[in-house]
Computed example of a mutant assay.
Amino acid sequence: MTSQQKPVVIWNNPEAVPNVKIGEEELCWIAVESDGKVFTFSAYYQNRPLITNEDGDLINGCDDWALSNECDGYIDSVCWVHNRLHTDYDHYWEQIKFDNEYKLLGWAKYETPEFTGVKV
């Protein structure tokens, strides 16, 4: 591939979601439209649902990967998220909220690009 060529990315319908194992997340590319402009960037699709029994208690094992916050306790997180730096947490996940002004156009599997830059 020459420096003029861009890698081929296969975009998925925004209504579809990545096949991510329960309790995990996967890094992908997403394309969004805002103010008439299209942006692409990496984001995670997270599949960390809150699964409880009939008494409202987390099922066995769910508490190993269920997310919590200080205000609400355990939270359901099956959505697109950013992983942000935070002084108090190893991983701070922030949901990406889409609406008519910030529209998800599609997503693609993230593949690390080959480095073709400066050679020493």
Results as ranks from 00 to 15, higher is better:
residue 41 F to S: 15
residue 56 G to D: 04
residue 66 A to E: 00
residue 55 D to L: 11
residue 36 G to I: 14
residue 72 D to A: 06
residue 40 T to R: 12
residue 62 C to F: 00
residue 46 Q to I: 14
residue 45 Y to F: 15
residue 50 L to D: 01
residue 62 C to S: 07
residue 54 E to T: 12
residue 49 P to D: 07
residue 51 I to V: 15
residue 73 G to L: 07
residue 36 G to N: 10
residue 59 I to M: 12
residue 70 E to A: 08
residue 46 Q to P: 01
residue 60 N to V: 11
residue 50 L to F: 02
residue 68 S to K: 07
residue 50 L to Y: 01
residue 39 F to T: 15
residue 68 S to I: 02
residue 71 C to G: 01
residue 70 E to M: 07
residue 58 L to K: 05
residue 38 V to E: 12
residue 44 Y to D: 09
residue 37 K to L: 08
residue 50 L to R: 07
residue 59 I to T: 07
residue 43 A to S: 13
residue 49 P to K: 03
residue 45 Y to Q: 11
residue 54 E to A: 12
residue 37 K to H: 04
residue 74 Y to E: 05
residue 45 Y to M: 14
residue 59 I to S: 01
residue 38 V to M: 08
residue 37 K to F: 03
residue 44 Y to K: 14
residue 67 L to P: 01
residue 68 S to G: 03
residue 66 A to P: 03
residue 48 R to W: 03
residue 47 N to I: 07
residue 69 N to R: 07
residue 57 D to R: 04
residue 35 D to T: 10
residue 35 D to S: 13
residue 40 T to Y: 00
residue 41 F to L: 15
residue 57 D to C: 04
residue 36 G to S: 10
residue 64 D to N: 08
residue 43 A to L: 09
residue 59 I to E: 10
residue 47 N to G: 11
residue 40 T to D: 05
residue 52 T to Y: 00
residue 67 L to M: 07
residue 39 F to I: 14
residue 68 S to M: 02
residue 48 R to H: 10
residue 44 Y to P: 08
residue 54 E to M: 08
residue 73 G to E: 01
residue 66 A to Q: 02
residue 35 D to A: 13
residue 57 D to W: 02
residue 67 L to R: 04
residue 36 G to A: 10
residue 59 I to C: 07
residue 51 I to P: 02
residue 38 V to L: 06
residue 64 D to F: 01
residue 36 G to K: 11
residue 64 D to R: 06
residue 74 Y to I: 05
residue 42 S to K: 15
residue 42 S to D: 10
residue 62 C to M: 06
residue 73 G to C: 04
residue 69 N to Y: 00
residue 66 A to I: 03
residue 39 F to Y: 14
residue 58 L to S: 03
residue 41 F to C: 11
residue 48 R to C: 12
residue 59 I to D: 05
residue 54 E to D: 11
residue 37 K to D: 09
residue 35 D to Y: 08
residue 44 Y to I: 12
residue 62 C to E: 06
residue 56 G to L: 06
residue 63 D to V: 09
residue 43 A to C: 13
residue 74 Y to K: 05
residue 52 T to C: 12
residue 65 W to H: 10
residue 52 T to K: 12
residue 54 E to I: 12
residue 41 F to Q: 14
residue 40 T to K: 13
residue 48 R to Q: 08
residue 70 E to Q: 08
residue 62 C to T: 11
residue 47 N to A: 10
residue 42 S to A: 09
residue 47 N to R: 12
residue 43 A to F: 04
residue 64 D to A: 06
residue 54 E to F: 01
residue 44 Y to N: 14
residue 57 D to T: 07
residue 43 A to M: 10
residue 53 N to C: 06
residue 55 D to F: 00
residue 73 G to P: 02
residue 61 G to K: 08
residue 62 C to L: 05
residue 38 V to T: 15
residue 65 W to T: 06
residue 56 G to H: 05
residue 46 Q to E: 13
residue 72 D to W: 02
residue 46 Q to R: 15
residue 35 D to E: 14
residue 50 L to Q: 04
residue 72 D to I: 02
residue 48 R to K: 15
residue 47 N to C: 14
residue 46 Q to L: 15
residue 67 L to K: 03
residue 45 Y to H: 13
